[in-house]
Design a binder for these strands. Structure first.
Lengths: 201, 201
DNA sequence: TGGGTCATGTAACCTGTTACATGATTAG
DNA sequence: CTAATCATGTAACAGGTTACATGACCCA
């Protein structure tokens, strides 16, 4: 997957591994993160696949660099990937995995958790985001038809965050109800912790 | 990550690898999928770690099975994981990765794509979902304080789908605007396809 | 007789994470 | 003087995917 992202970035202009890392960190961070260790490895395999070529550039005053360019084969692969809608969309949410098993902990603890999680942001720090936006807007003037798509991903991030907050509010309400119900039923035999020995009916 | 999911499931009662697969397929499918190949491998490493124990059960009329049970060490690990909020939440959306690079394709193609994607559901087929719900509701009667959390994950799925539809509508509107602008500007030199040679300013 | 369910896995591969290592230049 | 930026990676490991393989029983 990362390969396609790297390919797309190089398709927008030659780049070094380091530059690719900065774009991930500053602009794609809200939906994908990449470490240099993986980037450099993928670059090598992509070169072997013939999707990109490498040029060593000697510099003075700063370290030498390896600049990567897309090949016609690489561009063909990029288009093929963009047009391939056959792969099923995989959802994988480690956070929902946790939620599913939260019955192991007391309600109070989970309530506290949702109250805190409600205000966690997906976006990286404001400064970087602003800088990245400026870059993207500059590009937008040159190629408005490419920049829209970046805007669409940002809007997704915003809508996702909003939905997450609303979901947290819903969770908090549900757990408060549960708490009330448990307290109202008093000694109706609902142990709030470790019901270890029993099995479901 | 899958390890913790498996641990949580075994924590709710002894299970075979096959049963774990069916729970993933029928109930956790909207936020995590797991293949048997991975499940059986994880079970072995979890046994080595002392989180679970294995019992071979001979059956007649059907294949023998290996039933796994959680150990006190496994339960401790489950609680540790549930309480560990240090790991940063990782978002990774292959679909947004594609969106980001859609500028390579003509607007018409992308519009068609969003119109189709708008109606794609995250949830597995109705039949299975209903069956899984029935199971969960039965459990809910026995342990209402555990079943809420399952309900919360389902609600997340619903809210996510709703948000996704709204986002698609937004994307469609944006791309229609772009289309109109491009047509209005007529020959204002905005090639809708492959601007290969040029670099950004 | 053909497909679904129950039940087990292995092997090879690809993808992602964590930890480590180096070193010059530049701005505060 | 110290931290950030530019610039490169390697090694080991963890996690996930794809493809393959087997076999009995039951229902239509």
């Amino acid at each position: 997957m990362l390969k396609r992202g790297i390919l797309g970035l190089i398709g927008n202009g030659d780049k070094t591994g380091y530059e690719i890392m900065t774009v991930f960190r500053d602009s794609l961070n809200h939906f994908w993160m990449a470490q240099t260790s993986q980037i450099y490895r993928e670059l090598q395999t992509m070169e072997k696949a013939g999707w990109i070529t490498q040029t060593h550039v000697v510099q003075t005053g700063r370290p030498d660099k390896n600049v990567f360019s897309i090949t016609p084969a690489g561009h063909a692969e990029l288009l093929r990937w963009l047009r391939d809608h056959s792969a099923p969309v995989r959802y994988r949410n480690p956070f929902l995995m946790k939620t599913f098993f939260m019955g192991e902990l007391p309600v109070e603890e989970n309530l506290a958790f949702f109250r805190a999680f409600r205000d966690v942001s997906v976006f990286p720090d404001e400064g970087r985001q602003a800088a990245a936006s400026a870059d993207m807007y500059r590009q937008a003037i040159a190629h408005p038809e490419k920049a829209v798509y970046w805007k669409l991903t940002i809007e997704f991030g915003r809508m996702y965050e909003k939905m997450q907050r609303e979901w947290c509010d819903y969770c908090i309400r549900e757990l408060e109800d549960l708490q009330r119900a448990t307290r109202a039923g008093e000694r109706t035999d609902v142990p709030p912790h470790h019901p270890q020995e029993e099995e479901e009916a």
